[in-house]
């Protein structure tokens, strides 16, 4: 059952130097319990997609398209309507646990205020819920730490609290924006395990935003590859890792450190991310693509295909 359906999402930002086309014609679906990864380099527009679903884009954003949830277009919803969905139905885990928590408020209060508001619990009951959810994200000694301030926690613990915040209302969808990038590797693994367990328990749909393909392989079923605000490839995780069909995805996979790689080399994709000041008319990846041919400079490839969808004018067989 499709829970969330994003259609033709476009996000532009007006700036002093002109418009930034951060997200272009992005469409995807999310079903109950599904785990989808959204990968792409820094600046490719991953966070903005999640924020647009939450209705939290910056003031200078111009957004078009549709985000359908329960028959409502969230992009057209009022702030009050969105407030009924935020946290209760769709929750977001933010990128940076260091700054996502209010430094002047006890973490217990930051958790309990959510259920006080949405479920009308008393302060006392809300506190109990806060303790429960803190225990669920494996924060030791939760009861005592309820009255601590964020700065008294380590980075990993803070990220757990941010996750707890997203979970406390048992939402149908969690948008997890790089939940582990700010943490060191061992903590990363713990947090991903935790997310995995909770996801299975509650049958939540998760949109996992990351640029770490290793995390994707362990956690997700489907994966979407974003480049310059455009969807480049959409496929099952297994298929993607086995036979990536898009030149950009291939580049990304080559850039992942691989213990089986005999040469031990890291293959960063040469060149830099595209300039998003103008709406592209050619394949945005063309300047960096190994397989570029003349027509690539003239046409904007559409996302096509059945199981594996890709945006490249050349057939898979023609790629090097």
């Amino acid at each position: 059952m499709t829970l969330l359906s994003v259609r033709d999402l476009n996000i532009r930002f007006t700036t002093g130097d002109g418009d930034v086309h951060a997200v272009n014609n992005v469409s995807f679906d999310l079903s109950a319990g599904q785990k989808v990864a959204l990968v792409g380099e820094s600046g490719s527009g991953k966070s903005q997609i999640a924020l647009s679903i939450m209705g939290l884009l910056a003031k200078n954003a111009i957004v078009s398209g549709q985000v359908m949830f329960n028959g409502n277009n969230l992009l057209a919803a009022s702030n009050d309507e969105l407030n009924q969905i935020r946290a209760q139905k769709i929750a977001m885990i933010f990128q940076d646990p260091m700054s996502a928590l209010n430094p002047y408020m006890k973490v217990g209060r930051q958790l309990s205020e959510i259920v006080e508001l949405h479920e009308g619990l008393s302060r006392r009951d809300a506190r109990i819920r806060a303790i429960e959810v803190m225990e669920a994200v494996q924060i030791p000694d939760a009861k005592r730490r309820l009255d601590a301030y964020p700065h008294e926690f380590s980075g990993g613990m803070r990220q757990r609290i941010v996750i707890a915040m997203a979970l406390i209302c048992r939402p149908q969808i969690i948008l997890a924006d790089e939940p582990t990038t700010a943490l060191d590797v061992t903590v990363q693994a713990q947090i991903m395990h935790l997310l995995d367990d909770i996801q299975r328990d509650m049958d939540t749909a998760v949109l996992l935003i990351t640029h770490d393909l290793g995390v994707v392989a362990g956690f997700c079923e489907d994966v979407m590859v974003l480049y310059g605000g455009r969807m480049m490839e959409k496929s099952k995780v297994g298929a993607l890792f086995k036979s990536p069909s898009h030149p950009y995805t291939r580049g990304l996979l080559r850039a992942v450190p691989n213990i089986h790689d005999q040469t031990g080399q890291l293959h960063a994709i040469p060149g830099s991310p595209p300039n998003q000041m103008n709406a592209p008319t050619a394949c945005p990846f063309a300047p960096r693509c190994n397989d570029v041919i003349d027509t690539c400079w003239q046409t904007l490839p559409e996302l096509t295909g059945e199981d594996t969808q890709r945006a490249c004018i050349q057939p898979v067989e023609a790629l090097s």
Partner: peptide, 17 residues
């Protein structure tokens, strides 16, 4: 404009709160 206010918005809190 700070991230923690965005977090608060994501909780669905009313603007006044």
């Amino acid at each position: 404009n700070s991230p923690f206010i965005r977090t608060a918005r994501a909780k669905g809190l009313p603007e006044r709160t």
